[in-house]
Computed example of a mutant assay.
Amino acid sequence: MSRRLDGRTALVTGATSNIGRAVATAFAAEGAHVVVTGRDAGRGEEVVARIRAAGGRGDFVAARLDGSLRASRDLAAEADRVLGGRVDILVNNAGIFPGWTTADTDEATFDEVYAVNVKAPYFLTAAIAPAMAGRGGGAIINLGSWVARLGIPVGTLYSSTKGAMETLTRAWAAEFGPAGVRVNAISPGVIYAPEPGQTGTHPAEVMMRGTPAGGTGTPDAVAHAAVYLASDEAAFVHGTVIDVDGGRVGVAVIAA
């Protein structure tokens, strides 16, 4: 049976844990050669070992995407080298979430969050997308968030960065789409896996009350959407944001 990403190469940022790890693992299972990247080499090698144990192809490239042009260009160049001269799929997943309320956010935190969450993927895309366009095709998947479109009283800084990424998705689709590069985004809802032995109700679970799903999602749910957007099945999908959020943004369930 043909796998959906056979013969393709992929770079997944922030791939050493949670959503990024699930996306990298799913891509490899579908036949892609995946570069797993992140700051923690130990966790990165664990992901690569998992990919290889399942018969897939994966390599770890350490990267500290601090928002600098150099860091993004260096990662793009190393991924290109490891993957044999091309990156077919780019997933801009890496991000940080410090800073809860507006008044509690200092300038250094503001600059750091925008550097990691917006500047880094911006310059990484700038380093990779033109080569995709030159080859006549490729896929870029950005990670947004449900809090970019449904206001909540915490995480204001983070939500604004995810709003920026969703806007860039549409702008990049217009810029690179005519050359065959599909740019789309996924907006995850509350993704949370309870720790073994955990008791009580976690705040993440409370956030999903009143939704059709009625509970939190898993990283695999996001990975399934990423595989679709990276594959030929999504050949006619450009500049869209797929909500993988259990209905959190668009639907309200009124309990009897």
Rank of each mutant, 00 (worst) to 15 (best):
M1E: 12
M1T: 14
S2N: 08
S2Q: 06
L5F: 03
D6K: 00
A10Y: 08
A10L: 10
A10G: 07
L11A: 02
L11V: 01
L11R: 01
A15Y: 03
A22G: 11
T25G: 13
A26L: 00
A28K: 09
A29G: 14
E30L: 00
E30N: 01
V36I: 12
V36T: 07
V36Y: 09
T37M: 11
T37E: 11
R39S: 08
A41W: 06
G42H: 07
E46C: 00
I51N: 00
I51E: 00
R52T: 13
A53W: 08
G55R: 06
F60T: 06
V61E: 14
V61I: 13
A62E: 13
A62G: 15
A63S: 14
D66I: 02
G67D: 02
S68R: 10
R70V: 15
A71I: 03
S72Y: 10
D74E: 15
L83H: 09
L83Q: 05
R86F: 00
L90A: 07
N93H: 12
G95T: 01
G95H: 02
G95F: 02
P98K: 08
P98I: 04
G99N: 06
T102F: 15
T102H: 07
A103T: 13
T105Y: 03
D106N: 12
V113S: 03
V116D: 08
V118F: 12
P121Q: 06
Y122L: 15
Y122V: 11
T125W: 00
A126I: 06
A133V: 11
A133K: 11
G137N: 10
G138Q: 06
I141L: 09
S145R: 08
S145T: 04
S145N: 02
S145A: 12
A148L: 11
R149V: 15
L150K: 15
G151H: 09
T156P: 01
L157E: 09
Y158H: 03
S159F: 05
M165S: 05
M165C: 02
E166D: 12
T167C: 09
T167V: 14
L168Y: 12
A171G: 04
A174E: 14
F176G: 03
G177S: 10
A179W: 03
G180V: 04
R182N: 12
R182K: 10
V183C: 08
I186L: 14
G189I: 09
V190C: 08
I191R: 03
A193K: 13
E195K: 15
P196N: 13
G197C: 09
T199V: 14
H202E: 03
E205M: 07
M207Q: 14
M207G: 04
M208E: 09
R209I: 14
R209H: 12
R209E: 15
G210W: 01
G210R: 00
T211G: 09
P212N: 11
G214P: 01
G215T: 11
P219G: 07
P219N: 06
D220K: 13
D220P: 07
V222F: 01
A223R: 03
A223V: 04
A223W: 05
A223K: 01
A226T: 00
L229S: 11
A230V: 01
D232R: 00
E233F: 02
E233K: 01
E233C: 04
A234F: 10
V237E: 03
V237S: 10
V241K: 02
V244A: 04
G247H: 05
R248E: 09
V249W: 02
G250W: 12
A255Q: 12
